[in-house]
Design a binder for these strands. Structure first.
Lengths: 215, 215
DNA sequence: TATGTATACATTGTATACAATAAAAGGCGG
DNA sequence: CCGCCTTTTATTGTATACAATGTATACATA
């Protein structure tokens, strides 16, 4: 089923997560058809997947956009703090040489772009780093769970901008995690990843507060 | 979209998880149509959801049944050990009086059926107990994640039978968790839930070993 | 005015026809 | 006999017609 690569699904999801479609709006299958120029079947399938993901809610009379709230972000981070390290641990225990090489290259690139202060590239590489760890964990369950979360917070992060200060620290943390993984120290890799996610979350909280003061 | 209540989806999922459909079998949309007496549209939607869940894999030439492996069970328990307690913690912090009442009734019933040695009812009530905690956690993200896991291990548990010994202990653990929750002690509720999941997992490992010796 | 009921309408659910695709089979020249 | 190209065939992807559903509205009646 290529439908998981369903273009409508991906576009609509991105549009919801990025706020391009306002949450006050009420969708319908037909509206989705018109918006993306397809017939009802692919539109329906996109909506079905989004509903399973909890991003929309079908009420029988139109489709409500639910999206991801600040509370959801809090919850996702609470969960990630507890399980993201599991992926690092698994990778440390069973990761292949090529996996570790790929991760080490990602970190090297990150260090380069930190020096260049290229926020865009750094965001991309952050995704790359975590995605490599997920895949290399060898756990279908973790990959599914963490990838979904990552997708959902990714767009949020773009909105909350990324400070140069946090970027630098984040990369330094990645480097530590990489070292723990490549030396096969699963215990340490898990602990360091917990710290990493926690720091990222605390940074988000700080930014949120700053934003609140603005408004 | 009532399609999340899609009968084909639920039946096919149950048939895959219970092993009623063998993993060696290769499905196709048409086969699903014939099996459940529906047209391609609902069959497709069922397969789509199952693929997102990772239970089947579309190869372009037929649909492979992936199901849940022992390794997946291991991973799910590793994750549950780390986050199931989060739901208990949230419920302890924010659960309504009626939630706590419902949970306390579930535990009372469990104690009754332990004395009656009714394994069937005990399995049902175990599901009830955990589902109440999930909902009362007030976290859409946790509900989605944990419910999916619970569904996936539920059928597995049925196959591995439930020993009377473990049932009794499990209910005792539930009672402790309930007490922590109703006294608002989130910290303790999380810790006790960790222990509970860990004990359940260790029991599964023991049963698995016993099974292996048989074969 | 309040309430019950019929009806119209918007929306979703299902079936099916047709198009696109990609793997397997078969044939042809080397 | 082997490799390449064509043809076939199984399967999925998309569009659309029609059925079912449920909600709002208007109207009749108490």
């Amino acid at each position: 089923m290529k439908t998981l690569e369903n273009e409508v699904y991906q576009k609509l999801e991105a549009d919801i997560l990025s706020g391009k479609i306002d949450k006050s709006e009420t969708l319908s299958e037909i509206k989705v058809c018109e918006r993306y120029g397809v017939s009802r079947t692919p539109a329906r399938e996109a909506l079905l997947l989004l509903e399973k993901e909890g991003l929309v809610l079908s009420t029988g009379r139109g489709i409500k956009i639910v999206g991801i709230s600040d509370k959801d972000i809090d919850d996702i981070y609470a969960i990630r703090m507890r399980i993201e390290g599991l992926a690092s641990r698994f990778m440390a225990q069973k990761g292949s040489v090529s996996d570790i090489k790929a991760l080490s290259e990602a970190v090297a690139l990150q260090e380069f772009y930190v020096s260049k202060n290229d926020a865009q590239k750094l965001r991309e590489l952050d995704t790359t780093f975590h995605e490599i760890v997920y895949r290399a964990s060898g756990s279908k369950i973790l990959i599914g769970t963490l990838s979904t979360f990552h997708k959902q917070i990714c767009v949020y992060r773009e909105r909350s901008l990324v400070s140069a200060e946090r970027s630098g620290k984040s990369v330094a943390e990645h480097k530590q995690i990489l070292q723990a993984i490549s030396s096969g120290n699963g215990e340490l890799a898990e602990k360091l990843t917990y710290d990493h996610v926690k720091n990222a979350y605390e940074h988000i909280l700080k930014m949120r507060k700053a934003n609140d003061r603005e408004n």
